[in-house]
Design a binder for these strands. Structure first.
Lengths: 206, 206
DNA sequence: GGGGTCATGTAATAGGTTACATGATTCT
DNA sequence: AGAATCATGTAACCTATTACATGACCCC
């Protein structure tokens, strides 16, 4: 069921979305993306945009419409979405909304190897993380508040709400994890520390 | 503060972790990774492992220790972690635990463009997502239960607990979002649908 | 003794990021 | 008039995924 798309970069999805509204040239896309702060949700750089536009054109999802020249500026190539592109866009977006896909956040990787550090240090580090999580939440929240105050419809901030929800959940998880380690009755701290000493000993004394 | 690492692929972190225990050759690493089900947390394929090992070696974080031959099998190159590697490993893992980094999940990208679909369809799709989220939660939970029953210490399942927490939070978020759209008093449905018709009209009738 | 899968890699290709280039405006 | 920034892209370089190779063991 996990369809293999000709162009899989999320930036391509955004490009299709904007070209659905009207034809644009790459720089205009770049500008629009920046203005809408899309970089918060979709990783992109100036360079990757041209790459993606090239890929989309090759795949027939967008087509070169005209090259115009304005003043002494370099030529600009305007692209329009094709019917195939429209179809691909709807199907792709639909699919992303329906299917939760397995991803690989850095924190998950770190957690899977966390036993390599001694428990007291981990507790300290996680405490530090809690502080930063709180800071991020505050920042996202204030971004939301600002945009709402400026009159933006909350629908266009839904991805920030999602972020906020995830930050909250992670905060709860980390708090919980710390408790698991440090609980005086049932905490993993002691056995973990023991296991850790063993491993260090196996590697030979430093 | 976001340090630029010589090798940034998470797979390299896992390699360093395992080589901290003892020297191994690439295939053995590959096998160990598979046995520990690390692929659930760290994306990797046979090919990328060799690449990463090459990068680590070039960066001086691991070093070729010997090449041995056993029976008629091809030669195997055994790698050992270096002091620089040990330092890098601790520092890197530490940093990952402390700093929540801004990532780009696919669902966030989809949410940021969701206004391009009509609200009733979005409600349908999100309902579908809820079903799949529940299925994934059940699957993760049963994996955890199985491993615990087999005697694994819960510390080594912490990343699965995290996943579970995130799936739960996403479920809550999606449920909430559906409610935001469909609430008969305050729902965004009508205004969204209206806005959507406008946009479609602007593109000209199909 | 022939067909899978294990073991062990290398090479070709595609995908993405960074650096480079260059004329046009705009600001001081 | 020189400095900064906008506008517009190309090219070089890394990274990562896929495909290709090939001998050994294991099962029927």
């Amino acid at each position: 069921m996990a369809v293999r798309r000709k162009v899989s970069n999320m930036l391509a999805l955004a490009v299709l979305a904007y070209l659905t509204q009207r034809p644009m040239h790459p720089y205009e896309l770049s500008r629009t993306l920046r203005d809408n702060d899309d970089a918060r949700s979709i990783k992109f750089s100036h360079g990757s945009l041209y790459m993606v536009v090239g890929q989309l054109a090759k795949a027939g999802l967008i087509a070169e419409q005209e090259t115009s020249r304005e003043g002494q500026r370099p030529e600009r190539t305007v692209y329009a979405i094709t019917d195939a592109g429209r179809t691909e866009f709807r199907e792709w977006l639909t699919n992303l909304l329906v299917e939760p896909d397995h991803e690989y956040p850095h924190f998950v990787a770190a957690l899977s190897l966390v036993a390599a550090l001694p428990p007291d240090e981990v507790v300290r580090l996680l405490g530090d993380r809690l502080v930063r999580l709180a800071a991020q939440q505050a920042e996202v929240q204030s971004g939301i508040d600002g945009a709402l105050a400026a009159g933006l419809h909350p629908l266009f901030l839904i991805e920030e709400q999602y972020r906020l929800a995830m930050l909250g959940a992670e905060t709860a998880f980390v708090t919980d994890f710390i408790e698991q380690i440090t609980n005086p009755e049932t905490g993993w701290g002691p056995s973990w520390a023991e296991f850790h000493r063993q491993a260090a000993a196996n590697r030979g004394p430093s």
